[in-house]
Design a protein around this nucleic acid. Structure first.
Lengths: 164, 164
DNA sequence: CCTAAACATTTTAGACTTAAAACAATTGGA
DNA sequence: TCCAATTGTTTTAAGTCTAAAATGTTTAGG
């Protein structure tokens, strides 16, 4: 508290250094972990992270997904998905067909090969994550989940505000 | 606690679903915020996020940095920095010179123009971050900082272990 | 029915990114 | 001194990514 709390109401050049540091730390953590996962995926399975992520989305959707769905879920651009899918169809991991009811829509799903390979990778991937977060207690994990959920909500509202 | 705590010592297929969810949430938060910042930088200043990040590093180093320093700080590959710097020198934001004492080393620093433009962007950038994290209390911020520091430490050790 | 708007995807152009190889310069022993 | 590792940077090849424009399809309102 300052002595003159009246000034708090006025639009002063506020200090947001803490939030800035928080953002940088969040970014550092993610970049560090992402790089580690990327490296292990390449080393162990010769697969890229985006390919793995796309397959992870499809593994959760046995009936397939449209490209738009994938794009929204992965939070990447449409054009990006087009290219990724192209390469995964080429390598035999994905099956792609035009929807029967709407000829604009492409439905993609994992092939047998794709699913089998993904499951193998996913099992190991999970142990890597456990290793990486190994020093956190159960309570730490719960608390982080809670705070990140709050952060996500706060950020989504900021996005919303800008789009108005 | 399970009834038979003896089994804890054995190597059982453990469940790491919580850590996995935590990782996905961390990634979602970062991607969401990164996308928002990227969009605002483009819209408001017609600049890309990597360019902004590089300039931010240099703003903190009035005497300049070597390309390796930048690469380590930004946690990106050497080749990546080479290209980024090329474009920023081209646009007049960066000055690049070979070190007097070691002809392998390139020292880069912000030009007057670069520094002026960065300062303008940074001021607004800080308000965006404040907006995005706006719903977090001071305590939330402190707690997140602490938990992310712990996460970073844990991840770094995992990276270290793999490199042995 | 027609057609303007909305929607799903692809294309385009350019930038970013990585890993690995190549190149250049320095350094630390033998 | 010499030269084998090390270090700093660039190059290469391939992939990832975005924003915006273009293409093709569906849908609704008149």
């Amino acid at each position: 508290m300052t002595l003159d709390s009246e000034t708090k109401a006025v639009e002063l050049p506020e200090d947001h250094a803490d939030e800035l540091r928080l953002w940088l730390r969040l970014l550092t953590c993610t970049t560090l972990i992402e790089g580690e996962i990327r490296g292990r995926l390449r080393e162990r399975f010769d697969v890229t992270l985006p390919r793995f992520d796309l397959m992870a989305q499809l593994d959760k959707a046995p009936d397939g997904m449209t490209l738009s769905d994938v794009s929204k879920r992965m939070m990447v651009s449409n054009g990006n998905v087009t290219g990724l899918v192209e390469r995964l169809v080429e390598s035999g991991h994905l099956d792609r067909r035009t929807s029967d009811t709407d000829r604009r829509v492409q439905v993609i799903r994992l092939t047998k090969l794709g699913r089998a390979e993904f499951r193998k990778m996913a099992a190991e991937h999970e142990t890597w994550i456990a290793d990486i977060f190994g020093e956190l207690t159960e309570k730490d994990v719960r608390e982080l989940m809670r705070l990140l959920a709050k952060t996500k909500g706060s950020a989504q509202k900021a996005v919303q505000r800008r789009q108005d």
